[in-house]
């Protein structure tokens, strides 16, 4: 089965989620996969994709791909697909991936297995699992008899593998002038350049239990000790204690980190919708009846103002050993 994988980079750095998708493609296909890499000044990144499973890399390197546009990036993917004629296309379900996958699929007259958390091949067809109804159920999905199978993969779920492999063959794509009608004119990065929850292996989140915005220092301390990203419940976002970009849940980000630490978060169903698929969940809450304990792997019933600093301390000590 022939796979083509979309490789996302921002500012010359390849997204880990794309390497996860590439590793998955080469594993499922049992052979090196094709990859497509659009951007400006990205040609040099192509050779490094070999060790993650790329046999050929289609590079679209031009000035007007410096900033993201659906037109340019979907165009690159589509051009590579025309050359490669893959059976399946994998795209990491990042904000960019979610932006291009539906357009690319519609252009090719097919739909998408969206945000899958498991993927396998059965008789040459993709079969995946994806959470639905806010994680209250999971659906096994396939693409029927679609001539082209497209799937987006949940970041942080599939392993990114690397091996000693031959350098991939590189082919360049010339997309001509792109002139998108919708174009990014500016990217405003938060000054701190913080790790985003959707990309983090470990997340420490705070909820209404922190009592007020002045107490983020408490949560930040543990976050830093663990080298984690910061998350939040909707209650504290709505209260204006923190920006929406930190919100985890049904109306925030959906994440699947290795470790999720919920501090003073009750675990409402809409919050669980965003983090219920985390591998290990730690609940720190003073209410033993809080629903978060129903999904937690480990829990401490107690006052976060006493417990969180001690956990931060214990983490730092353990890391010193």
């Amino acid at each position: 089965m022939k796979f083509l994988v979309f490789i996302e980079q921002r500012e010359g750095k390849i997204r880990k989620a794309s390497l996860e998708a590439l590793s998955l493609a080469s594993k499922l296909g049992g052979a090196p996969a094709a990859a497509v890499l659009p951007g400006k000044g990205v040609a040099a990144l192509a050779s490094g994709l070999g060790k993650h499973g790329a046999g050929v890399v289609y590079v679209a390197d031009q000035d007007d791909l410096a900033l993201y546009s659906a037109k340019g990036y979907v165009g690159a993917l589509d051009a590579a697909a025309k050359k490669e004629s893959p059976d399946a296309v994998l795209i990491a379900a990042t904000s960019m991936g979610k932006d291009i996958a539906p357009r690319f699929a519609a252009r090719n007259g097919v739909s998408v297995l969206a945000d899958v958390m498991e993927l396998r091949v059965e008789n040459g067809r993709l079969v995946g699992w994806r959470p639905v109804y806010s994680g209250k159920a999971r659906a096994e999905v396939d693409c029927g008899n679609a001539p082209l199978q497209v799937a987006t993969t949940r970041p942080n779920v599939f392993p990114a593998q690397s091996s000693d492999a031959a350098e991939p063959r590189v082919e360049s794509l010339d997309l001509g002038a792109i002139a998108p009608r919708a174009r990014v004119v500016k990217v405003e990065t938060s000054a701190s350049k913080e790790l985003d929850v959707s990309e983090a292996d470990i997340i420490v989140s705070g909820g209404r239990g922190i009592k007020g915005p002045e107490n983020w220092t408490l949560i930040r301390d543990l976050q830093e000790a663990l080298g984690a990203a910061l998350g939040a419940s909707r209650a504290v976002v709505d209260a204006g204690w923190i920006d929406h970009q930190y919100q985890v849940g049904q109306t925030g980000k959906v994440v699947s980190p290795t470790l999720y630490v919920a501090c003073g978060i009750s675990g409402a169903i809409q919050h669980l919708a965003g983090m219920g698929t985390s591998k290990v969940i730690v609940a720190l809450n003073k209410d033993p009846e809080a629903p978060i304990f129903k999904v937690a792997t480990y829990g401490i019933v107690g006052d976060i103002f006493q417990i969180v600093p001690e956990v931060a301390k214990a983490v730092r000590e353990a890391k010193k050993e």
Partner: peptide, 30 residues
């Protein structure tokens, strides 16, 4: 429709939470 749900299941139950006694916060944290 080309994308089909072949099966719908409730998610596998998570294992029960291991509660750590909190009488001594420092010991619980460790």
């Amino acid at each position: 429709a080309m994308v089909r749900w072949r099966k719908l299941e409730l998610p596998p139950p998570r294992q029960a939470c291991k509660l750590i006694p909190a009488d001594d916060p420092a010991a619980a944290a460790k």
